[in-house]
């Protein structure tokens, strides 16, 4: 009965939302926005591209114009990882047993793959300001490489402490770069390096540096979460 009521309520709410939006003149149909009267148009104009110096406009917005939001999102992941660690207990952990015995080929083969995945992630992180990608996807790829090692070797444990240190330092450096902007120029997270030529690997000022830090932080945080989920408190 409760479920049925819930379903009905969701359907009514859904219908209400669709009807309300359909009858609202101010709500544009998909793809029919007139960019000329939008703030977002200013992101595309040439002057602004040179200002931030990122060839990837999405990155220019995410790390340039709205870098403070990105710092917030990094914090959201950080606190989630912290929460996972608190909930799973802070006593000494040991690996959970896998249901199968990984053989020699699997263990060695996965180590070869590990390197390749890691290199891909580095590429994605370093080119975040030029092509689609950046710190968040790159960091997630790093963590997926670590997950691969966990799943193919039942004795493998990453250096969790090292990840914690990396995570703390990368996060702090992000804030420190922001504060440098405040001290050296005028405002928090403001670019204090030359913007360079749009399209060059070394361009866009502080954006590539921030993306490297984000990549390291996201990678170590998700790897930490992977470790938390694949271990349990040591049975004394």
């Amino acid at each position: 009965m409760k479920n049925l009521f819930g379903l009905l309520l969701s359907l009514v709410l859904g219908a209400f939302i669709i009807l309300a939006l359909n009858n609202t003149a101010a709500f544009p149909a998909f793809g029919e926005v007139d960019l000329a009267d939008r703030v977002s148009e200013q992101y595309f104009t040439d002057g602004n591209v040179a200002e931030v110096g990122s060839a990837n406009i999405v990155t220019a917005i995410v790390v340039g114009y709205r870098g403070f939001d990105t710092l917030g999102e990094v914090t959201v992941l950080f606190i989630s990882a912290l929460g996972v660690a608190i909930i799973f207990g802070e006593k000494k952990q040991e690996r959970l047993d896998l249901k199968f015995k990984p053989n020699f080929m699997l263990r060695v083969g996965s180590r070869v793959l590990f390197g390749m995945i890691l290199i891909t992630s580095i590429y994605i992180i370093f080119h975040g300001h030029l092509t689609p990608g950046g710190g968040f996807p790159g960091g997630a790829i790093i963590a997926s490489a670590v997950l691969l090692l966990y799943l193919t070797d039942d004795r493998f444990r990453s250096n969790v402490k090292g990840f914690k240190i990396l995570e703390g330092i990368a996060g702090s450096l992000f804030v420190v770069i922001g504060l440098l902007g405040l001290v050296l120029v005028t405002s928090f997270l403001q670019n204090f390096l030359p913007a360079g030529t749009v399209g060059d690997l070394l361009s866009a000022g502080i954006i590539p540096i921030i993306y490297v830090l984000i990549g390291l932080k996201v990678g170590s945080e998700i790897s930490g979460i992977v470790d938390n989920f694949l271990t349990e408190e040591e049975s004394a």
């Binding site: 200013q42 602004n48 114009y65 403070f68 902007g181 405002s187």
Partner: peptide
Amino acid sequence: GVIIGGFDQPLGI
């Protein structure tokens, strides 16, 4: 008001 990233409203936060 405080400007962040050197971008005044409505471009920045």
